[in-house]
Amino acid sequence: MHHINDPDKVRTAILTLSDTRTKSDDKSGQLIKTLLEINHEITAYKIITDDAQLLSSVIQEWVEKSSIDAIICNGGTGMSKRDITYNTVANMLEKEMHGFGEQFRQQSFTEVGTRGLLGNAIAGSIGDTAIFALPGSSNAVSLAMNKLILPLLPHFIGELRK
Rank of each mutant, 00 (worst) to 15 (best):
L117P: 09
S137T: 14
G124T: 11
L118G: 13
S138H: 02
E111Y: 13
E111D: 15
A133H: 04
T110N: 08
A140D: 08
G136Y: 09
I126T: 14
F132M: 02
I122F: 09
V141Q: 01
G113T: 09
N120G: 14
Q107W: 08
D128E: 07
A140S: 06
T114C: 00
S142D: 03
A130G: 08
A130K: 04
I131Q: 13
T110E: 11
Q106E: 01
N139S: 11
L118M: 14
G113S: 09
T129N: 08
A133M: 10
L118I: 12
I122C: 03
E111N: 13
L117E: 12
T110M: 04
V141G: 10
I131H: 15
G136R: 14
I126K: 11
A130T: 14
A133V: 05
N120Y: 12
S108Y: 09
A133P: 04
N120F: 11
A140R: 01
A121V: 02
N120Q: 15
G124A: 03
L134C: 03
G113D: 04
S142V: 00
R105W: 03
E111S: 15
S142I: 00
F109V: 08
G116W: 07
I122A: 01
V141I: 07
Q107M: 06
V112G: 06
F109K: 13
A121R: 01
N139Q: 13
S125M: 10
A123V: 12
I126W: 12
Q107P: 06
L118Q: 15
T114M: 01
R105F: 05
V141P: 05
A123I: 14
P135K: 07
P135F: 08
T110F: 07
G113F: 01
S137Y: 14
L134I: 09
I122W: 02
N139L: 12
L117I: 13
A133K: 03
G136W: 12
T129V: 15
G136D: 09
L118D: 13
A130P: 08
A123L: 09
V112I: 15
L134N: 05
P135Y: 11
G116Y: 00
A123G: 11
G116T: 14
V112W: 00
D128N: 06
Q107C: 04
G116P: 07
L134Y: 04
I131C: 14
G119W: 08
V141K: 07
P135A: 13
A130D: 00
D128K: 13
D128R: 05
F109L: 11
Q106S: 03
G113L: 07
A133T: 13
A123N: 11
R115S: 10
I126C: 10
A123R: 15
G113V: 05
V141W: 01
R115P: 06
G124V: 09
L134D: 03
S125C: 15
R115G: 08
I126R: 08
N120C: 11
I131D: 10
T129L: 02
I131L: 15
F132Y: 06
T114N: 02
T110K: 10
